[in-house]
């Protein structure tokens, strides 16, 4: 509905600004999420990122109750949830069952908590995102967060690669795997906090994983994989917004649909070129 109104009146400068803000917000989040998503894939943290993202909804409920600003509250709650999950799920982060329980438990708890809050809010906006409602202030926070995430990834790049390969090897090199894990978790929590408005709590993990997975067949080095993933993330963000405008569909899910489309094309093309499973 809203999108239709917009398409019809794209001419006015104010609404243009409106769209530009949405595009900038989506691009910022996608560009930060995609390189980080490579580590989510390499470290097999898909469920973990889901759990962190779902906990964001609980953060929203807490922010509304305390009448605190959403972004920092969600950041703190997601980070706390991620740290707790790390403790519960154990050192390997591979405990599928525990993570599954926590991921869905956090989502359900968040939904219940939001419904208990006195303030009447649109839960959909937090579940599926509301990128078209991004304000200038939001945009500033999103880009600041995105910049922080990309900086963390660049700064810790080699260390994280070594931790992915072997925590013991990293330790022998004088690194502290636990510390690196914590910084990675912090980056993840920042992505969650800035992405909730763009794609919503339910789809944040897809923004991390899908561009990175689509990039894999074409990357000969980890750096290239992150770069290509970033490009695919940005393309998905812009393409998804375009689709949302044309087809009057919700922006967040449309972005993810475009990312899945690119992933499918990429996988098919890689299969044609290298054969099944021959992606390296």
């Amino acid at each position: 509905m809203m999108a239709t109104t917009m398409t019809m009146s794209t001419g006015t400068p104010m609404l243009n600004d409106f769209l530009v803000r949405a595009a900038l917000a989506a691009v910022g989040v996608a560009a930060a999420a995609a390189p980080l998503g490579c580590f989510v894939i390499w470290r097999r943290m898909a469920y973990f990122s889901d759990a962190t993202a779902h906990a964001a909804l609980l953060g929203v409920a807490i922010a509304l109750t305390l009448q605190a600003p959403i972004f920092p509250t969600v950041l703190v709650v997601s980070l706390a949830a991620a740290v707790i999950v790390t403790q519960i799920a154990g050192r390997e982060m591979a405990s599928d069952t525990a993570l599954g329980v926590i991921a869905h438990g956090a989502l359900a708890l968040g939904l219940v908590a939001v419904s208990l809050v006195d303030v009447r809010i649109d839960v959909d906006a937090f579940l599926f995102g509301d990128v078209l409602a991004v304000t200038r202030g939001d945009l500033g926070v999103i880009w600041l967060g995105a910049f922080a995430v990309v900086s963390l990834v660049v700064w810790r790049w080699s260390a994280w690669l070594l931790v992915v390969l072997s925590p013991d090897l990293a330790r022998a090199q004088g690194l502290d795997p636990k510390r690196e894990e914590l910084i990675l978790t912090l980056a993840l929590a920042i992505v969650v906090a800035v992405a909730i408005q763009v794609v919503g709590a339910l789809l944040i993990a897809s923004l991390l994983i899908i561009p990175a997975a689509a990039a894999r067949p074409w990357a000969k080095s980890p750096e290239w994989m992150a770069t290509i993933a970033g490009g695919i993330g940005i393309a998905s963000a812009l393409g998804g917004l375009q689709v949302a405008l044309w087809a009057d569909t919700p922006a967040g899910p449309s972005i993810v649909v475009v990312a899945v489309f690119i992933f499918t094309i990429s996988t098919l093309a890689a299969t044609l070129r290298y054969g099944w499973g021959g992606s390296s």
Binding site: V164, R216, S221
Partner: peptide, 8 residues
Amino acid sequence: AVDTRLPL
């Protein structure tokens, strides 16, 4: 853990 998902 050498995984094909990590191009290295």
